[in-house]
Structure formats: C-alpha cells, structure tokens
Design a protein around this nucleic acid. Structure first.
Length: 479
RNA sequence: GGCGCGGUACCCAAGUAGAAAGGGAGCGGUCUGCAAAACCGUAAUGCGUGGGUGCAAAUCCCACCCGCGCCUCCA
C-alpha cells in the first residue's frame, strides 16, 4: 500500500512500526460551532483510511482529539495586531453559556453527526481540558532543555532551537518572515515563536501552573495526547490541509524536542472542499453545515458518498448537482444490494468466481495506490454491471453478497441502508392500489402511485408483488 | 513574495507511455397495463494551448493560457 506523505511530498510504501498494528492520530473538531461538510470531508477521509487498513487486516488504534480549549481566532505564531480570542470562549459569550456548556453541546453534536455519517468510532477521543497536566509536564521538560522560555507568565517555543521548523509545510523561516504578517509582540525572542502556555486574566478557563494561572496553546494538546495514547512515534497523522502550517509544524517541533525522535511516519492531509467553486469558510459564511444538507432531505449515505467519492488529495467542488449525482450512484448500489439480498439462497451453481476475484484485485489495487477511491468505486460499478446481466442462482447471490459487503466495510455506505418502516396510512394505500390493480382499475392504481410519489415513496411492481422504496433525497420529510 | 494543486464528454471523475474506467444527466430501444428497476444502443477520432522527445504521449520535456488552495479564522 502506498500513501502520499506530506512530509516528504512523495508517495511512499506504507509500513507500520509494528507489523500488524497501525497507530493513527486524527485532528478532530474544535467544539465551538456546528460541524460543516468540509470538516466531515477530512473526517471521512481519515475514516476511509482506517477502514481500509482494517480491511487489510491491521489492527487500527485511532485517536481523535476534541479541542475544547486553546484554539484561538488568531494564531499567535504569526500575526498580528490583536490578540486571538479563544473560540470556545467567544461562542460562550455569544450564546451566553459557559465554555463547558458550549464544549459539551458541540461535542455531543459532533458525535451524533459522526454516527449519522457512519464514521467508525475512534479508539479514544481525548479532550484537551482533560490533559492539562500532561501538557504542563511537556512544557517543563522543554523548558529544562531550553526549547522554550517564559515571559510574563507566557511560555513560548524557541524556534531557533529547532532547525527543522518549516520542513513539513515547505516554509523556510526567511519566507515566513518575508511573508510580512509577522507578530509585533515585543516579548518574544523571535516573531515566529509560538505559545505553549498563555497568561490572560480575561480568559474564562484558567488552570494553575508553575508559571501562574493560564491556559494551554492549541498546538500543545496534540503533542501531549498523541504521546500519551500512541507513544513517542506513531504511524499516521491525519488532518485538513490547513493544519499543515502552523499547527502540525508546531506539533512536530514540540514532540520531537521532547522525545528526540520523529513523531509521525506518514502525514496524511485532506484538501479542502470548495462550494460552488469558491472557498468555503466559516468567516465568509458560504458554508453548509452537515445538518443543512441533511435538513434538505438527503439521506446521510448520499452525503457520505458525495464527500468520499473524490480523491482526498484533490480539491473537491461541492454542489447540489454533485449531491444529486451521488444520490443516483447510491441508489444504484442500494438497488443492487437489495436485489442480491432478495436472491440469496441455497441452490444453484456459482459462475462469477473469476469476476469477483478480478474485481477484488482491482478494488484493492486502486486503494493501495494512495486510496484511489474513484478507481475503487469504478471497479465496483463494473462488477454490478456484469452481475446485473447474468441470471444468478441463490448460492451465487449469497457468494456475491459476501464480497460486496466486504467492499462496503471500506466504503461504509450500504451499512447505512437500514430496514425502513411505513406508516399505517401509506401501507393502506399500497394495499388499496394492489386491490385496484387486481380489478384492472389502472386509473385508480396510477393515482395512488402519484400520491405516494409525492410523499417520496417509489413503487415497483414486480412478479413477486409490489415493492416500495423511499427516495434518498426525501429522507426526513417522510412520514 | 514563498509553497502547492488542478484543467479528460453536458456535469462529476479514474487513468500518468501501448486499444479513453466509472457515476449522474440526456436521447432511442427491450421489458412493463403504465411505471420503476434492470438491460441494450447512443456521447471525447479526443484528454487547456503551442512546440519537442519516442515506433508509440492524456501520460515524459519545454513554453504559454486559465482555475484554485495553503502561508490569516478554517478540516
């Protein structure tokens, strides 16, 4: 399996530190507002990565942090004319709640949506506020070694002590400085030095430390928590491309100064998505939250498919048209799945063994190549086309079903197709229509079909009677 | 200014040297009471533009045009 490594800017063969175990750290949400589809694009990319590693037989330990303190509106690494404000605090003031209430509310929201979009649960979800002691320990060690210094209760990382700073992002110190947006805070030795601990009496969250009351810098939590849950060097670190600098750059500086060894073997970064060809960001307001999309009636598996179906290292342009296209693709998968399930039985021969073997190989070859998901999906659709042409036996359907479900362990789409129920009224209409059809009262039958269609129920008359399904873009409006 | 990504049919999107995957939309057809599903047929003599190297280029090299991202809150 090959993965693109941001650190080396190359595709590299993936070899875990421990033969059968893969340790993954995924940058999780800062819990201060509603998660948007861009957030979930990178969470889903990380999910597909972990799912495929499991598919390949690895035991995966995935840690996803919940940032509930320290993430400022302005990073102090560069910039600025004004001090950044903690995002959680800002939300707390806006919503007139405590930081704790804000964090809890949006953490719950995140978990709910993660489940809705079928993200496989991580092994640990450590919270920054629950690891203050670990962070303080880390700072102590870095102070001892001269990697940071104190000014007025603030602790700053001494960039000049870490020559490798800038390697991940490709920024050199000169370029960063030449980039002009450089801090003017006089108390730093170097404008690029970043805070590990901040002293700010106005901050609502305060912890005791050897340097007085304060709160931790954002970058520090990931160093402290990855160290605690994954050890000094782990396999893969995931995140959005915007995390490359400064967040992950700073993380490397902290962790490696602390342990004296490389912290991450493979850096995995998901490109941002655009909305209608424009950058989506919270500040410019052109964004969809996950709930916005679900509230339009799209089934979560349609959104999941849309967000995962283009390559993670490719900018993705999110549009409603694209979402509808995804709906069509998911419908095709679902129809196939239901057909296979219906046919599964215990008689007949298997003739499609070669087809399945070939598909499996092509599927894995695609994913082995830096998670080429579009290629992998293509192989599945090819298989569906071939099988649909055949008259398959019950045994064969069973056999195909098994492999098909195996593919879906990576995709995580079909798992979301759960049995649906109808309300009494709709059930009655379907029965009524069946009766009408028996009486050859087709006018009545077609009228009922129309009525149900308006409610998002599609009917199919088959030799085994009338089947029904819900339209995937009329999801929560039903019943 | 620094770093980086991309331009393949109406839309989305694989393919990175040797017969242009796949999904969606459209059109025609088979099946069906009508539909739906499924199937069959139909779409780039062509892969941003212009050169070059090769027996062979969407794929390599050079130049140019266009779109976008990160470096600033953001996944």
């Amino acid at each position: 399996m090959y993965l693109h490594n941001t650190y080396t800017k190359q595709k590299e063969e993936f070899k875990p530190i421990e033969t059968n175990k893969v340790r993954v750290y995924s940058c999780g949400p800062t819990v201060y507002s509603h998660p948007h589809i861009g957030n979930f694009r990178s969470f889903i990319a990380a999910d597909i990565l972990c799912r495929y590693l499991r598919y390949k037989g690895y035991q995966v330990i995935q840690v996803m942090n919940i940032t509930d303190v320290g993430h400022l509106t302005t990073d102090d690494n560069l910039t600025s004319d004004e001090e950044g404000i903690d995002k959680i605090q800002l939300a707390a003031e806006a919503e007139k709640k405590s930081p704790l209430e804000i964090a809890r509310f949006y953490t719950d929201k995140f978990f709910h949506l993660a489940k809705t979009l079928n993200l496989h649960p991580a092994s640990h979800y450590p919270r920054a506020t629950e690891h203050i002691l670990e962070m303080i320990e880390l700072i102590k060690k870095l102070l001892e070694r001269g990697y940071c210094y104190e000014r007025e209760g603030n602790i700053y990382y001494r960039i000049s002590k870490f020559p490798n700073y800038g390697h991940l992002s490709g920024n050199t110190l000169e370029n960063l400085i030449a980039g002009a947006r450089v801090d003017i805070r006089g108390e730093k030795e170097n404008p690029l030095d970043f805070a590990l601990w901040k002293h700010d009496p106005k901050h609502l969250m305060q912890w005791d430390s050897p340097w007085g009351k304060g709160f931790p810098g954002w970058h520090l939590e990931c160093s402290a928590m990855s160290l605690k849950y994954l050890g000094r060097t782990f396999d893969i670190h995931t995140g959005g491309e915007d995390n490359i600098f400064p967040h992950h750059e700073c993380e490397i500086a902290q962790s490696e100064a602390y342990t004296g060894q490389p912290v991450v073997r493979y850096w995995f970064h998901t490109k941002h998505l655009l909305v209608d060809n424009q950058k989506m960001s919270k500040s410019s307001g052109n964004f969809y939250t996950v709930e916005d999309i679900l509230n339009k009636g799209y089934h979560p598996m349609v959104l999941r498919y849309a967000l995962m179906s283009s390559h993670y290292r490719q900018q993705m342009n999110f549009t409603i048209e694209g979402l509808n296209s995804a709906r069509g693709a998911v419908e095709r998968l679902i129809n196939f799945k239901r057909m296979i399930e219906k046919k599964s039985g215990a008689s007949g021969a298997i003739n499609s063994e070669t087809l399945i073997t070939d598909t499996k190989k092509a599927f894995e070859d695609a994913l082995d190549d830096d998670l080429n998901i579009s290629g992998a999906l293509g192989t599945i659709f090819n298989m569906i086309n071939e099988i649909n042409k055949l008259q398959i036996s019950g045994t064969e359907a069973l056999f195909i079903k098994e492999e098909f479900y195996n593919f879906d362990k990576v995709l995580g789409i079909l798992e979301m197709d759960t049995p649906e129920t109808l309300d009494k009224e709709i059930e009655r209409l379907i029965k009524e229509r069946e009766q009408a059809r028996e009486n050859k009262d087709y006018k009545q039958a077609d009228q009922i079909r129309e009525t149900l269609k308006k409610k998002g129920i599609i009917l199919e008359d088959t030799s085994q009677g009338t089947k029904w399904r819900k339209e995937l873009s009329r999801w929560d409006r039903l019943l």
